[in-house]
Nucleic acid binder design. Structure first.
Length: 723
DNA sequence: AGCACGCCGACT
DNA sequence: GTCGGCGTGCTC
């Protein structure tokens, strides 16, 4: 009785009456046993005359609701309830009891109208759309198709992908009109693109409305942001839009700046990054969605930006980890932009100082053309690279004090008379396999032969059985010393400070990243990826602890090391710039000179390195040539999912192997087991070309399990970390 | 995921 | 006879 009254009051306050009244049709119609739902009026509330059924995608809630639900459209919502708008619908109320004409249960969920249709296939009465949140059509057909394709590719749900793709709404930003679009700019001059034989042609193709596809190996130096700007300007000149995704906000800002000067002020492009905050982000996103702005540069989430009639999809530095999304289903910007280039029939430009194996594959299978400079241009733009074997011991005391081999120390001392010197130190988190200092035999646990790992405070422990190790001796040579673990940037800076007392020292790392340093003598100690740009280029760079980068137990260790080195080296003055012998910069890399990534750096040949790496992966059946998916969860769940999935012919299951147990208190990353639970992980591998069949099979098996209410294992397509 | 319905065992 | 266990299945 009193609860009845309360409910009525709540309902009356909460929302316009029409939707709620219409929600009651179901009860009436069910009794009439109507085979097809032809929504009718209830207590005089009329439905939309044309296309009275809205197909709605429910945004949150149960994962397996990855389908469209039909709702009735009340007449007064007819005009606003267009495809693409955000709506609120009652969901799950159907099982609620109806008492005295009021419905119990069921919550209001957010969703999007995907389509308006005349009739519903649903054999039952429809509830009505409760509310049109706003008339802004934010989920257009192109964006929807993209999200569907991404969901399919990654064996994920459409709702998951929509959460990544759709920005949070801000009513204030939405209420503001966007500025009218500016006319296309004139085609840009080739500028520094002229350094690449195919560069000017690529720009011309974009400007005339073609859709060229290229893997661009950028020359070292400061010109790549301007080159991106020119590519975007050329695309705009054709009357089409453009999208460029870069790995971090610092780089996005550099491209944004270059675009601002190339396009003459702002208005034709926007910067879209997370740092903007939700309201400003939505304001800019709307300007793109409304077609007011046709060019976008941004970080990861911008890969979904609904650029109108795009002519170019671009990505810079596709090997950077931050291009891989943290959230399910963890799509990679490179692949999303590839999908878009195909689906939206656009040009494609993947730019990088180095080259990932994936990029090499695009070249190898002919999908994209290589866009490279000639050797002479490379020689002029790149610094001189010298290697020092890590085993080399410094003769001089000063060099030893700085933990530096003689050559490195001399190079730094000399370069400091001409400008800033960059010192790249791996992050302390980069824990490589420990090995004997003398013979480099990997350090193993005496009990179970598992790999030894460095614990905090220099203590050792086994990575498999967890036993602490106190008296380690090398099994091969009897040596008692392990290679020192990576010395962090701060301690390196202190040590260098003692060796070069008169020189100012700056550090740049995870917490405080410097974006630029002035063109004055200074030592700049940085972790990979955080290197500041020196205005006139660095006089030299020192790449320390190469063994730590190369020794990571990861398929990509070599590729990543080379990428980090190229990035640092590209900030150093070119060999051929500044007037030859004394003006050019030098890079000293401290790593075993015979290793392939080291040689690729010395020759500045990332394309050759990637091609060899690709060939090797093809031979070994590794991704990206073969395609893989990781399935992790409780042992039975993993086994059942794999067994029940109709995997493509020739699919191979590797493992399962137990996953490390998540320690309580440790932040949990997607795919990690919940604390205390024992999980296993299996890898499923398929032949080249069967990637989409694999994703489809896993997605379907997952849906079937979910329909039965079973806990679903985490499925990750194209896992990055696979030993 | 919630939530109601349903078909079996202990109780007034 | 009824109350209530949580196993199944549906939600427009």
């Amino acid at each position: 009785m009193s609860s009845e009254n309360e409910r009525s009051k709540r309902d009356a306050e909460a929302r316009p009456p029409a939707g709620e009244q219409l929600a009651l049709i179901r009860e009436t119609v069910r009794k009439a046993n109507v085979p097809r739902a032809k929504p009718r009026t209830w207590r005089g509330a009329a439905l939309a005359e044309e296309l009275p059924v809205a197909k709605v995608l429910v945004d949150k809630g149960p994962v397996h609701l990855d389908k469209l639900w039909d709702y009735a459209v009340p007449a007064e919502m007819d005009a606003e309830a267009r495809p693409g708008v955000r709506v609120r619908v009652r969901f799950g109320a159907g099982t609620g009891k109806v008492r005295e004409g009021r419905r119990e249960g069921g919550g209001l969920l957010d969703g999007y109208i995907i389509e308006r249709v005349a009739e519903s296939d649903f054999r039952g009465p429809l509830a009505a759309v409760a509310q049109v949140v706003s008339p802004e059509p934010v989920l257009g057909p192109g964006l929807l198709a993209l999200c569907r394709a991404v969901a399919d590719r990654y064996a994920g749900s459409l709702a998951d992908v929509l959460q990544l793709a759709m920005p949070r709404r801000s009513a204030r930003a939405e209420a503001e009109p966007s500025a009218p679009p500016l006319p296309p700019p004139p085609p840009p001059a080739p500028g520094t693109w002229a350094r690449y034989p195919a560069g000017p042609g690529f720009l011309e193709a974009l400007a005339r409305g073609d859709r060229p596809r290229a893997v661009w190996t950028a020359l070292p130096g400061p010109h790549w942001p301007g080159e991106w700007a020119a590519a975007v300007a050329a695309t705009l000149a054709s009357g089409r839009g453009a999208l460029v995704v870069v790995p971090d906000g610092k780089k996005a800002a550099r491209v944004d700046e270059a675009l601002t000067s190339a396009l003459g002020g702002s208005g034709r492009h926007v910067l879209l990054t997370a740092e903007l905050g939700p309201e400003e982000r939505y304001r800019r996103w709307l300007a793109v969605s409304r077609g007011a702005v046709r060019a976008v540069v941004g970080t990861r989430a911008a890969m979904f930006a609904p650029v109108r009639d795009p002519g170019l999809m671009g990505i810079w530095d596709d090997g950077d980890q931050s291009h891989s999304d943290d959230h399910l289903p963890r799509p990679h910007a490179r692949d999303v932009l590839l999908l878009r280039a195909v689906q939206e029939r656009t040009g494609f430009l993947l730019g990088d100082l180095g080259r990932t194996v994936e990029a090499a594959q695009l070249v190898e299978n002919g999908w994209a053309r290589p866009l490279e400079a000639g050797r002479d241009q490379v020689r002029a733009a790149a610094p001189l690279i010298r290697t020092v074997d890590e085993g080399e011991v410094a003769r001089d005391a000063e060099a030893r004090a700085a933990r530096l081999p003689t050559l490195a120390w001399q190079t730094v001392r000399e370069a400091l008379t001409r400008g800033p010197v960059l010192v790249q130190v791996p992050r302390r988190g980069y824990v490589p396999r420990l090995a004997c200092e003398r013979c480099r035999e990997p350090a193993r646990c005496a009990h179970c032969s598992g790999p030894l790992e460095a614990r905090d405070a220099d203590r050792l422990g086994c990575g498999w059985c967890g036993r602490p190790e106190t008296g380690w001796h090398c099994a091969a040579c009897g040596g008692a010393r392990l290679r020192a673990s990576v010395v962090g940037a701060r301690r390196t800076a202190e040590e260098l400070g003692r060796a070069f007392p008169a020189v100012p020292i700056r550090t740049s790392g995870r917490d405080h990243v410097l974006s630029t340093v002035p063109d004055r003598p200074a030592l700049v100690v940085s972790t990979p990826g955080a290197e500041p740009v020196a205005e006139g280029g660095y006089a030299a760079a020192l790449l320390l602890d190469g063994w730590a980068l190369l020794g990571r137990p990861d398929l990509r260790a070599g590729e990543d090391a080379l990428r980090h080195w190229l990035e640092a080296a590209s900030l150093v003055r070119g060999h051929g710039e500044g007037g030859g012998a004394d003006g050019g910069g030098t890079v000293v890399v401290i790593a075993e000179p015979t290793l392939r990534p080291v040689q690729a750096l010395v020759r500045w040949d990332p394309a050759g390195y990637a091609a060899r790496e690709l060939a090797e992966r093809a031979q070994l059946g590794f991704p990206p040539v073969s395609r893989m998916a990781a399935v992790s969860g409780p042992a039975e769940a993993v086994a059942e999912l794999i067994a029940s999935a109709g995997l493509p012919e020739g699919a191979e299951t590797l493992g399962p192997v137990p996953l490390p147990v998540t320690e309580p208190g440790r932040p949990r990353r997607p795919g990690d087991p919940p604390p205390g639970e024992r999980w296993e992980r299996a890898l499923v591998r398929v032949r080249p070309g069967q990637g989409s069949a694999l994703a489809a099979a896993l997605k379907e098996a997952k849906a079937r399990r979910l329909a039965r209410g079973e806990k679903d294992p985490a499925v990750r397509v194209d896992p990055l970390e696979i030993g």
